[in-house]
Design a protein around this nucleic acid. Structure first.
Length: 272
DNA sequence: TTCAGCCTGTCG
DNA sequence: CGACAGGCTGAA
């Protein structure tokens, strides 16, 4: 999916265009998806006439804040939110389209090939409770808090970064890239890092995310941003899905293993 | 802490 | 045909 940099890109695209716009109409393309998410068409229609006051991102979640309610999206592995100007030719409705929100000048379509994405509709005052078990955001976390989180986690680094209860925002791509860039093995125990390694990890984390956001995220396969375009950061990937290729650092072959049921690519020589 | 399950698509 | 894919949940 969309990990932090991709969701942040979408957030910024939407923010510029639909904040202060009133939701005028909703078209449901896939009623079964709503049903699976325990949302009735009537629930969704209750947003009609409300104005979007802000767009927010928390970890990999995207929030459309209306006056009283909040519509939360999680894009799963293949979800996307596509903006279209009403004057442009409309988005072709395919079997992957779930629903479309219509505003004064734009429409916003939620699409998801695998349908692992999710939506939630809540009263605004319930937002913090909803996110109570989500970890601190990777983009804004302080070094002190990052250090504390690492010391709380029992397990290896791969598991740490994938677990959204500690740090929110990283997924498989950015975890593998971060660990390679920091030259630390995904198998290393979180609590057994040296101080210098923690510092470097934090530094690289911030740089990696910022660089990826600057390039509007990574498109491995399906990801497209809010404007329907792919990101560019995949061109900067050093290891993700490059098992069997030579390590860009030492030339030995990158290795593929499974950690926590997730494919992991790393260099056994560089990453200790 | 593992692991199937949720879905659809692609690649070998 | 099986293996794998930006994620996460809940049950054993």
């Amino acid at each position: 999916m969309p990990e932090l940099p991709e969701v942040e890109t979408i957030k910024r695209d939407l923010e510029k265009r639909i904040v202060k716009e009133v939701l005028s109409e909703i078209m449901i393309h896939n009623p079964l998806f709503l049903q699976k998410n325990k949302i009735t068409p009537q629930d969704l229609f209750s947003l009609k006439g409300q104005l979007i006051s802000s767009v927010e991102r928390r970890g990999k979640y995207l929030l459309l804040n209306y006056e009283k309610k909040c519509l939360i999206f999680h894009l799963g592995l293949t979800g996307s939110l596509i903006l279209k100007k009403n004057l442009e030719s409309p988005l072709k409705v395919t079997k992957h389209c779930l629903f479309t929100l219509f505003f004064k000048t734009y429409s916003l379509t939620f699409r998801d090939i695998r349908k692992f994405g999710k939506i939630f509709l809540l009263e605004r005052y319930k937002i913090d409770f909803f996110f109570k078990s989500l970890g601190e955001d990777a983009l804004t976390i302080s070094y002190e808090n990052f250090f504390k989180l690492l010391s709380q986690h029992k397990g290896n680094l791969k598991a740490f970064f994938l677990n959204q209860k500690y740090l929110a925002g990283l997924g498989n791509i950015y975890t593998d890239e971060l660990l390679f860039r920091t030259k630390i093995s995904p198998f290393r125990k979180t609590t057994e890092l040296t101080l210098d390694e923690v510092k470097l990890l934090y530094h690289n984390l911030k740089n990696l995310l910022q660089e990826a956001i600057n390039l509007r995220g990574s498109s491995v396969k399906d990801y497209i941003d809010g404007l329907g375009h792919p990101g560019k950061f995949q061109e900067k990937h050093l290891v993700y899905r490059k098992a069997g290729h030579p390590c860009p650092n030492c030339g030995n072959l990158l290795k593929y293993v499974k950690i926590h049921q997730r494919g992991t690519t790393f260099c056994p020589y560089c990453q200790k």
